[in-house]
Design a protein around this nucleic acid. Structure first.
Length: 535
RNA sequence: GGCUCAGUAGCUCAGUGGUAGAGCAGGGGACUCAUAAGCCCUUGGUCGCGUGUUCAAAUCACGCCUGAGCCA
C-alpha cells in the first residue's frame, strides 16, 4: 500500500523563535524535543510535515549584549544562532525550517504584514511613558518595581524612564472576536489551566499595545516611519509566517501562507502565552489571516526541585547533557518523565534510574534475550509463524492490537508520557510472557512449534514498540529494526511512505522466516551516580 | 490584595463519595534465554492541617498552612 503525501492534510508545528541573548538552555531544548517528537509522529502517519524553529534576534537587549561583548549585533546573533543549530543536531532534531528574524526575506514579510494591518486602520501613533525594563522589553507599572527602580523579574537591572512616541496596535478592537474564538474553539489554548489564565486576562478588557520603539537601531524600521523601530515581538511572531516559505523563493506574504498556513500547533513555554494566545491571533485577524490551530503552553523545568538560573548557580547545560548521555536518552527522559503541560524536574539519579529501567532493562534486554534465543532455537530467523494463527487471547497480541489507537491518541494530544507508559506496558508484558512460557524449557522438551510461537510474539512486540517509540528514540528504534533484520531509517523524513503507519503500527507485521541481525545491546546500562554527601 | 492550580508511599504521579493505587528506588525468593537484566513476593502512607455535611470523605463545603502561577 502506498500513500501519497499530498493525500494527507499538511501539518505544521512551531517552537518559539528563541531569543539569542545567550546560548540555548535546557528549557529551549525541552520545547524543541517535544516539537520534534510531534513532527516525527505526524511524518510516521504520512502527513506532509513542516517543523519550524529558529531565533528571535532583534531588540535592545540583544544590541546591548552584543555591545558588552564588543561585537556587532549581527555577529553576536550569528554566533548564538549557530549554537542553537548545533544543539538541535546533537539532539537529533532535524527541523524543516530554521528561521532567523534578521533574515532579509523576513523583513519583506514583516513589511507586507504591517501594511495589511495599517490599511485596516489598526495602527496609530500615541505617546507612551513609563518605566521600561530592557531585559523584559516591556513597560512596567511603578508599583510593581522593587526598590531602586529595579525590575521584579530582572532584579539586578534597573528600569529606565521612557517618554516616547510609539505606534500602537488596536488590540481592543478585537476583544469580541477573540472572545468568540476562545468560545468556539475550546482547544485553542492548552492545557486547560493556561486557557483559564488567558480567559481571565482577556475578560478584564484588552488594551492596545505598543508595536514600536524609538532610539533603537537593532530592528526593522516601521515601514511608514523610519524614525521608529518595530517592537521585537511584532517582528518575532511574524517569523512563523516567513518560515513557511522556501528560503529560495522570492519572499511574499501571499506565497508564504499558501501551503502551510494556518499552523497547526504553536508549542511554547508558558511565559509567552499571552503573546501567542492573545496578541498573535488579533494581529492575524487584522491582517485577514486565519488563526492557528492550537497554542500549547508547556511547563517549566526545575533541577533537583530548584528553579534553574545563572544567578542561582544551578543550570543544566543541554550540550553537556547530550554529550554525556546521548540524544535518545535525553529525549526519552524529558518526554517520558514529565507530564507535558506541567512543570517538571530534572534529577540525575532519577534520569539514570528511568533510562536503565525502561530502555536498558525492559526494552533493550527484552530484545537481546529474545534474539539470542531465536538465534539458538530458530536458526537466527524470525520463526515461521503466521501471526494470524496466534490466538487473539495471546496476551501480547491483545495488548498490541489495542496499543495502536491508544498511542496515536496520546501523541495527538501531546500526552507523550501516556504514550510511553502504554508502549512500555507491552514491553513489560513481553518480559513476563517470556518468563511464564520459558521458551528455553520448551526447546529442551523438543516443543519446537511452541518455542517458535512464543519467540515470534515477543519479537513482534519489540518491533511494534520500537516503531511506536521511534518519534522519541529514533536511534534506538533504528537499531532494533536493524537487529530484527528489517530495513528502516526513522530519521528519514519520508518515513511515513516507506514504513506505512497502518501496516507497521499494528501488531503482526514482522515477516516470518526473515533472517535476524546480530544481537547487541541497543542501550547500555548507565552507571549509577556515586552517592554524594550533601553539603 | 484578587483569582487559579497543586499538596496522596523515599521519588514521580494516578485515584474526585463506598475496605488507600502504579512506576521507580529499597528488601527477600525461585529461575537462567538475557545488558548481574527479567519474573514472583515484599517494606513503606494520621491521602497538607482543622471544622463541617454524610450511614460513609483522599474525594463535597468552609477556614487555615505551604508551594507554583496569572492579574492588579
Amino acid at each position: 500500500m502506498t500513500l501519497n503525501p499530498v493525500d494527507q492534510p499538511t501539518f505544521a508545528i512551531t517552537t518559539p523563535l528563541y531569543y539569542v541573548n545567550g546560548l540555548p538552555h535546557i528549557g529551549s531544548a525541552y520545547t524543541t524535543i517535544a516539537a520534534d517528537v510531534v513532527a516525527r509522529f505526524y511524518r510516521l502517519m504520512g502527513h506532509p510535515v513542516l517543523m519550524i524553529t529558529g531565533t528571535d534576534e532583534h531588540g535592545q537587549k540583544i544590541q546591548r549584549t552584543a555591545e558588552e561583548r564588543g561585537m556587532s549585533p549581527q555577529s553576536h546573533c550569528d554566533e548564538v544562532a549557530a549554537g542553537f543549530e548545533r544543539l538541535w543536531e546533537l539532539l537529533n532534531i532535524d527541523c524543516d525550517r530554521f528561521i532567523r528574524t534578521t533574515a532579509p526575506r523576513h523583513n519583506v514579510i514583516v513589511n507586507e504584514f504591517f501594511q495589511r494591518v495599517w490599511e485596516q486602520g489598526d495602527i496609530y501613533q500615541g505617546q507612551q511613558q513609563g518605566w521600561y525594563c530592557v531585559s523584559c522589553e516591556e513597560f512596567k507599572e511603578e508599583r510593581d518595581l522593587l526598590s531602586d527602580q529595579r525590575c521584579p523579574i530582572h532584579t539586578n537591572k534597573s528600569v529606565e524612564w521612557r517618554d516616547e512616541s510609539n505606534y500602537f496596535f488596536k488590540l481592543s478592537k478585537y476583544q469580541e472576536q477573540l472572545d468568540q474564538l476562545y468560545a468556539d474553539r475550546p482547544d485553542f489554548i492548552q492545557p486547560e489551566s493556561r486557557r483559564n489564565e488567558v480567559l481571565s486576562f482577556v475578560k478584564r478588557g484588552l488594551q492596545d499595545f505598543s508595536i514600536s520603539r524609538i532610539n533603537l537601531d537593532w530592528g526593522f524600521p516601521v515601514p511608514t516611519d523610519s524614525g521608529h523601530t518595530l517592537y521585537v515581538w511584532f517582528d518575532a511572531l511574524l517569523g512563523y509566517i516567513t518560515a513557511l516559505q522556501d528560503p529560495d523563493e522570492d519572499p511574499s506574504l501571499e506565497q508564504a501562507v499558501a501551503r502551510w498556513w494556518p499552523i497547526n500547533i504553536h508549542l511554547i513555554g508558558k511565559d509567552i502565552l499571552r503573546f501567542h494566545a492573545v496578541y498573535w491571533p488579533a494581529m492575524l485577524m487584522s491582517a485577514g489571516l486565519p488563526v492557528p490551530g492550537r497554542v500549547y503552553g508547556h511547563g517549566f523545568l526545575t533541577k533537583d526541585g530548584q528553579k534553574m538560573g545563572k544567578s542561582q548557580g544551578n543550570t543544566l547545560d543541554p550540550v553537556e547533557l547530550v554529550k554525556k548521555y546521548g540524544a535518545d536518552a535525553v529525549r526519552y527522559y524529558f518526554v517520558r518523565e514529565i507530564e507535558f503541560g506541567k512543570d517538571g524536574d530534572f534529577n540525575e539519579t532519577r534520569f539514570i534510574n528511568v533510562l536503565n529501567a525502561d530502555l536498558a532493562n525492559d526494552l533493550g534486554n527484552l530484545l537481546n534475550r529474545t534474539l539470542k534465543m531465536a538465534a539458538r532455537y530458530c536458526g537466527d530467523r524470525v520463526p515461521e509463524i503466521d501471526p494470524q494463527t496466534i490466538s487473539a487471547d495471546n496476551p501480547l497480541r491483545a495488548i498490541g492490537v489495542s496499543l495502536t489507537k491508544t498511542v496515536a491518541e496520546a501523541y495527538t494530544h501531546l500526552a507523550f508520557s501516556q504514550a510511553c507508559t502504554a508502549i512500555l506496558a507491552l514491553v513489560q508484558a513481553s518480559n513476563k510472557f517470556v518468563d511464564d512460557q520459558a521458551p528455553w524449557s520448551l526447546f529442551k522438551q523438543g516443543k519446537q512449534a511452541e518455542t517458535e510461537a512464543v519467540l515470534y510474539a515477543v519479537l513482534e512486540s519489540v518491533r511494534q514498540a520500537a516503531y511506536l517509540l521511534s518519534p522519541i528514540i529514533p536511534g534506538i528504534s533504528n537499531q532494533i529494526y536493524a537487529q530484527l533484520g528489517l530495513t528502516a531509517d526513522f530519521n528519514d523524513k519520508a518515513i511515513g511512505q516507506g514504513l506505512n503507519y497502518a501496516e507497521q503500527a499494528t501488531w503482526g507485521y514482522l515477516p516470518p522466516g526473515q533472517p535476524l541481525g546480530v544481537a547487541s545491546p541497543v542501550f547500555q546500562r548507565l552507571e549509577p551516580l556515586e552517592p554524594v554527601a550533601s553539603s
